[in-house]
């Protein structure tokens, strides 16, 4: 057993560095290496019980714990925001157990753990993006048998994925899947990009940063190495398309970012605001203003951010 990183001064004394014991981290790293070697392939791993419930990012936390080092700077976002419960508690978890620096600034982070969003700011080669994944199997809802879906992945039988998209168009007139929109990785594996909005799918393609996906409940890890081809599935006559908004961000006036709708009162008033809080703050600091911005202190109007 190595104890190199296990200096009690580095974190809370009762815990090993970053909570998990070193053998577990090695096991997860082996799974990660395999996942990086086969982009989009779901690697089983012996997921541990974490001191938080399933659905709160236990998969992402284990991946982060396996890759984080004492010199890393961690950013955690939930629905794009740094200040929501899930993000705050995971950030505090690593601040306490690994004593690492944390940040809300995308550019300053070396590891970003995320639930649902990819930051608007372009990521770099020296950054790692860790996703929390609830259901790793994109074929699950049409084929519940795990033995069968594994076989379908092995033999590249992905027609079923299009059955889902067909059904969308038949019912809604367009592909109504807006999150967890299936992608084809490196022309080989169909992958569930976790419940990120499809707005973020194009960012996954050819991304400079390493992308790691951890599903805690189902104990699966998958990955996208830097600069991997990621293509969203579609039909020739119904091509893939991302969401657009008629409004701009009420706070910073951005028109190119993913906007959350916020209900303001019971008289039908509402506003749209960037889901990426760091992006929005940075724009406001450099002087951008949206129609609802009244130079109030930040946070008061955003604390009531729309729920998922």
């Amino acid at each position: 057993m190595e104890h190199v990183a296990n200096n009690p001064a580095d974190g809370a004394q009762a815990y090993n560095f970053a909570y998990l014991d070193e053998q577990t981290k090695r096991m997860i790293r082996r799974a990660l290496l395999k996942a990086v070697a086969i982009p989009g392939y779901q690697v089983p791993f012996a997921g541990r019980e974490m001191p938080m419930p399933y659905g709160w990012g236990t998969g992402g936390v284990q991946v982060t714990a396996a890759v984080i080092g004492p010199n890393d700077t961690l950013k955690v976002i939930d629905q794009g925001a740094d200040d929501t419960t899930n993000a705050v508690s995971i950030r505090q978890f690593f601040a306490k157990t690994a004593n690492v620096a944390t940040t809300e600034k995308t550019a300053e982070a070396s590891i970003i753990q995320t639930r649902h969003r990819i930051p608007e700011k372009e990521l770099r080669e020296d950054q790692v993006l860790v996703y929390q994944v609830p259901i790793p199997e994109p074929l699950r809802f049409l084929e519940p048998r795990e033995t069968e879906t594994r076989k379908m992945h092995a033999l590249e039988e992905y027609g079923l994925m299009h059955v889902k998209l067909y059904e969308d168009i038949a019912r809604h007139g367009h592909i109504a899947t807006t999150y967890a929109y299936p992608v084809m990785v490196d022309d080989r594996y169909v992958m569930d990009p976790s419940p990120t909005p499809k707005f973020d799918n194009p960012k996954m393609n050819d991304m400079a940063a390493l992308q790691l996906f951890g599903a805690g409940r189902e104990k699966r890890i998958y990955a996208l190495p830097p600069y991997t081809k990621v293509k969203s599935l579609d039909f020739e006559d119904h091509p893939f398309d991302v969401q657009t908004w008629e409004d701009e961000c009420g706070m910073c006036g951005a028109r190119d970012s993913y906007l959350d709708e916020v209900i303001l009162d019971d008289k039908g008033n509402r506003m749209f605001v960037c889901s990426d809080t760091d992006y929005c703050t940075e724009r406001q600091e450099s002087g951008h203003r949206g129609p609802q911005h009244h130079d109030q202190p930040l946070g008061s109007s955003q604390s009531g951010k729309a729920a998922e």
């Binding site: 027609g159 079923l160 059955v163 067909y166 039909f235 020739e236 006559d237």
Partner: peptide, 12 residues
């Protein structure tokens, strides 16, 4: 349509 999509038909 499932069998058609399974053999690569991608035109809705």
């Amino acid at each position: 349509g499932e069998r058609l999509m399974a053999i690569g038909d991608r035109h809705y």
